[in-house]
Nucleic acid binder design. Structure first.
Lengths: 351, 351
DNA sequence: CTGAAAGCGCTTACAG
DNA sequence: CTGAAAGCGCTTACAG
């Protein structure tokens, strides 16, 4: 049987199906495996021509180092964990896509780890995950990212992690991605004021969620800074769910003294407002203006399409993952992402 | 400084923070590391009392074998890859949750790998992913699962994989999970016939998707088996997207000879029908009955809530992952999941 | 700038 | 049923 030989050198054994190892490269290049290792790890202690020769060979052979072997020797895998406790599918998927954008061709892979922050043993579950897999880094996504105990556990383990948070927080061990939810809510407030609304109601997420607190504060403060205000009775705390949005809207729209606009902490609850308005015979936006938060696909599926605050989730995920795999412990301790309002058809000046 | 000693033996060194290794266990148990290895791998070649003694010790110490080291020795990691090319967030997330249900406490982890089946190099991308990570197994999710070339590549690599498919297919190398989309569509047809509809239209997904073909066939055949039929002009091929649903609905609802009911290949397109109906002043379900497919969250967010076919995606993911990690190449080559109709408020008898 | 030795924590192949 | 030796494909620590 004729052996296929490398067109370039003639010395490389026929492609046997078995991937090349560091030993193959070292032998073929006539250097020690340690030199190959230095090249793999971008050590400066390699002569330029040696490096170029070996790199060319690695490309020709299609060599990539075995992450399992590297991981064993490094005592650390090439896996990035994404830890989250969030029911919104689009948000999670966008975050994953973003992370994968950053990880593509980096040699790192993304391992997903949803958890339930309300269950007592969840921190231990994350610890086992991180420790056993010897993760290279962990992305903490809201609301899991808000749990200081989780972050403390990770810091104690000495594993690097990023926290994606609606606002700044004091954490020396973390790399932070701040999403500035306040700004998005403020923009919504400005928009409604500009349209002429004065009687505005809020349906907020649970006050145990920082995102809910931030969005509410951002909205109320922006209103106040322009002379507006929201009476307490016009603020209803709901649960970020469709059903809770329905319940809140029923309260707000029951009497004859209805608000002319409602700002919702997310799109799900805004959809709940739509449902109640439809049932009640109220026309959006003629009788009632509505704004959501998330700019989920739902926003454009509703009729009329929903004005909402876009969060740039994919960018957020990309930045968070990049901070984890970037070489060195260099700067970039805090990154920022800012939301912005996407205007659609759910608002108009009050009657 | 007082050393903490094991209450049980007094011989175990204080927990130093460093996880125990197979050598620690062997030494402490007074057996060879090979015996510990046999126990880890459930070999029958271990005396019962030896096994129990060692297992108790492992539990006490909190020992879990290092997947990196095992992977290196096995030449195979403990990672399951999920390969998909699907834009629907909820579907992907449900599939992931299902897979994670199966993987929980199994020692395996889930690595996600979205891809673009229309890009030319995507199969090579999956190959590199599978080969470099030495994946233990791969889950192929629609529509990537429909690509025979992808499956062939995996078979050639000798890696085990599951294909989740709308219908049966001939693939000796795969473990199959058949979702029987036909049955769900047939149930929708029966329901509309029972309500009294005779002039029914279809908005289908792209005919290049097996799911679209199956759903259409299932619907049309069920109609035919009860004496009904759908004229060609009443079947519009769309793209599974909201926008394409809008365009299709505009055609169907333009003239005065409107159908009394529309069956859509997914919920996204059904939302498009809603939009056009709203805009046109048609009332659902009074003037028009609508059925979707997916039973996505969108279905209950729309008003009136959408009758739709539920797919049991999480179960599907759980079964597919289970087939991958189940020991041995035992039976269970094909599993089945069946959809069913969830009746809500979007249908009623025709006027 | 380069390399030979030892080791990461497991398993395979072989011997008993 | 049990174990000593060699090896998986890399890196660290040390020497030159």
């Amino acid at each position: 049987m004729p052996r296929k030989t490398s067109a370039a050198t003639g010395t490389r054994p026929a492609s046997t199906g078995k991937p090349a190892t560091i030993n193959d490269i070292a032998r073929l290049a006539g250097v020690s495996k340690k030199t190959v290792s230095r090249i793999i790890n971008n050590s400066p202690l390699v002569r330029k021509d040696t490096r170029e020769k070996v790199e060319a060979l690695m490309r020709e052979v299609g060599y990539t180092p075995d992450p399992l072997a590297r991981g064993l020797a490094f005592r650390r895998s090439f896996l990035i964990g994404m830890v989250y406790d969030n029911p919104t599918a689009q948000y999670i998927v966008d975050m994953q896509y973003g992370a994968l954008d950053a990880l593509r061709d980096s040699g790192y892979e993304l391992v997903v780890h949803p958890c339930d922050t309300r269950s007592p043993g969840y921190i231990d579950g994350v610890r086992r995950f991180v420790q056993q897999q010897k993760l290279h880094g962990v992305m903490l996504v809201p609301r899991a990212s808000e749990d200081q105990n989780l972050a403390d556990m990770l810091a104690e383990l000495g594993v690097r992690y990023t926290r994606i948070l609606p606002m700044g927080v004091d954490d020396q061990d973390a790399r932070l991605v701040v999403t500035h939810d306040r700004d998005g809510a403020a923009e919504a407030a400005d928009y409604l004021l500009t349209l002429g609304h004065r009687d505005i109601a809020l349906i907020t997420g649970p006050s145990a969620y920082r995102s809910a607190v931030e969005r509410t504060a951002g909205f109320v403060e922006a209103l106040a800074s322009r002379g507006g205000s929201v009476p307490k009775a016009r603020i209803i705390e709901a649960g970020y769910t469709f059903e809770s949005g329905v319940a809140a809207a029923e309260k707000l729209l029951a009497g004859k003294k209805r608000p002319t606009a409602i700002f919702c902490g997310n799109d799900e609850m805004a959809a709940g407002v739509y449902k109640v308005a439809m049932r009640t015979g109220l026309s959006i936006p003629r009788d009632l203006s509505v704004i959501g938060f998330d700019d989920s696909p739902l926003a454009s599926r509703l009729w009329p399409s929903l004005t909402s605050v876009r969060r740039h989730t994919r960018d957020t995920g990309r930045i968070a993952a990049t901070m984890l795999i970037r070489a060195g412990n260099a700067p970039m301790p805090v990154a920022s992402v800012r939301p912005h309002l996407v205007v659609r058809d759910s608002c108009q000046p009050p009657a």
